[in-house]
Design a protein around this nucleic acid. Structure first.
Lengths: 320, 320
DNA sequence: CTAGCATTTGTTATCGCTAACATAGCAATT
DNA sequence: AATTGCTATGTTAGCGATAACAAATGCTAG
């Protein structure tokens, strides 16, 4: 027991004893067993985080924000990839809950019925991110992808573009992508631009290359198109490069806009107009919210459901 | 006990009993507690993985390869970011070991003395990746960054370039980056090209933007430079865009090469010559190796140390 | 009907730690 | 010297699962 106390800080223990213990620990190469500790103290120090993917995506930044926010709190991320599938998400939720995380962060507000039930009954703080679900499970840190995409449409409209197209993936698995398209369509209608032009190409998340191919199709199908909004900066970049290849001047002949404010949109030439959505901050603020929620849980005073709407802003650059 | 049996497969249990239990489980929303299970069975199902970073980096692909390889094995990744710092790595090794992972995968072969000791005494399979350490802790899945960079130099030399520069970060924290520079320098000497031109700019991992700025400096310092090798595709891309801005024709006026075969190098215009290093495969094969090693460990027959050298190849594209 | 075997269920101890309480030690105060 | 009030250490009893063994049940065959 004294050893146990020596190894955590804040316990009252004589300096002499502690030193003796520490020396023994170092000599023996002893490492505390946290599974056993967790079992006893009922605090695992885990936070489960489910993201669609971590490769070339905004979610990596969100994960990083979370990691940073949790720095020093003794909490550790348990990361899972859902691959943009709610079925896989359900599986992951279950296997994560087996580890008894102290909170769980998921991406988006769409889950399987059972997935949702698992979340609701988990007895731990739940945070949905990157979205603004109509019926949140509990806490939310996100924004409306539809609204964000709509504001991009209005921005282009304000610059004089009328024949505006949307490039995205073929399915609705990527709900954020689907929301963006929805926002595009609504904004077009609202502006009286009847003929929405949607190119669906590739399973989400669509790659740079697929963005390029989609642009090729777009040009073929609607040669008079004036601007293309891409579901993400990556596809926008692919589209932009395809324009280079075809010697189509951007933005003179066609304007290109992306979504997400990846570094690439800032650095490419021409730099790409995009919607900045503060991916890192979503993670960071989810982390901070979660710390408060866990604190409350430990004190037996569960926090009231909180919804944090994060900012987004159209970032106008050379490509529009 | 019967419940415990019902919840794992392969146990002999009457179908009727199992169904009854499953129903109760579903009704109660009961979820197994794996910390308790791990404590008892001495198998946590964790694999610790330490990577420098997961944002815009090859390591995300490696993590993905690992995840895929471990799919269905019941093992779960415990991911940690070292931020390219061996001190942070040491901390992470310790906190990971507290979770009693069944194997640990680290990036690179450089560790603090204590970090190395912890790895050696952990009593679990250790895999070092992305490098070819002189004295591996145990297993290795990697390649020589120096050799790979050297072969890129030779490739450029073969194409007639002589005044070849290297763009990288300012410190040696990123040991793989440092190795690449070393390989560059050695190859230049070996080819009789005396005047190595190295631009160090930004703390690793250097960004696209820093790659662009570095190119600007390079041109200023050595206006006659014919080719630039960048420490990664991201900086190469930044450099390439800077060339666009300055209306320097690539590869006519200056050739640009990267490292890592990120998607961006394939899609950019002009497409960037790079060294393909099979990031995903490194993860995948580390995962497979690790499964065998864990299997051996469980049977009480530890596996002999194994070194897997992964392939790399210069991929010649339009930028050189 | 019962021995004999296979299958299914039950018991007990244990994994390595910590919460909660109990005791010991020690200085200050009266 | 006795009392009080600390702080430092020790004891005991779990946390919730599983390993290992023990018992019960079911089935087949003689």
């Amino acid at each position: 027991m004294t050893v146990s106390r020596a190894l955590k800080d804040g316990a009252s223990i004589a300096a002499k004893t502690r030193n003796k213990i520490m020396k023994a620990v170092e000599d023996l190469g002893y490492v505390l067993d946290q599974s056993a500790g967790s079992l006893s103290s009922k605090r695992t120090g885990f936070v489960a985080v489910l993201v669609p993917s971590i490769n070339n995506s905004n979610f990596a930044d969100t994960a990083r924000g979370l990691t940073d926010a949790l720095q020093g709190s003794g909490l550790q991320l348990l990361l899972g990839y859902t691959d943009y599938s709610v079925e896989k998400e359900e599986e992951l939720i279950e296997s994560m809950l087996r580890r008894r995380p102290e909170a769980i962060v998921v991406t988006g507000g769409r889950h399987t019925a059972r997935g949702r039930r698992l979340l609701e009954n988990a007895g731990i703080p739940v945070i949905e991110t990157w979205d603004q679900p109509a019926k949140p499970v509990r806490h939310v840190v996100g924004f409306s992808n539809a609204e964000a995409a709509a504001s991009l449409v209005r921005h282009l409209h304000g610059k004089g573009y009328r024949k505006i197209a949307f490039i995205g993936g073929t399915t609705n698995r990527d709900t954020r992508g689907a929301d963006r398209r929805l926002g595009y369509e609504r904004a077009m209608t609202a502006l009286g631009l009847k003929d929405a032009r949607v190119i669906s190409f590739g399973t989400p998340p669509i790659t740079m290359q697929q963005g390029g191919e989609a642009l090729a199709r777009l040009i073929e199908q609607w040669p008079d198109v004036e601007a293309a909004i891409c579901v993400s900066d990556l596809s926008a970049f692919g589209a932009l490069m395809e324009c280079h290849r075809r010697k189509l001047q951007v933005p003179k002949r066609i304007a290109i806009a992306g979504f997400g404010d990846f570094e690439i949109s800032r650095c490419s030439y021409p730099a790409i107009t995009t919607v900045g959505v503060h991916c890192y901050d979503i993670g960071r603020r989810a982390g901070e919210l979660l710390l408060r929620a866990i604190e409350g849980e430990r004190k037996g005073q569960p926090m009231a459901a909180e919804t944090i709407i994060t900012n987004y802003a159209v970032i106008s650059r050379e490509s529009t």
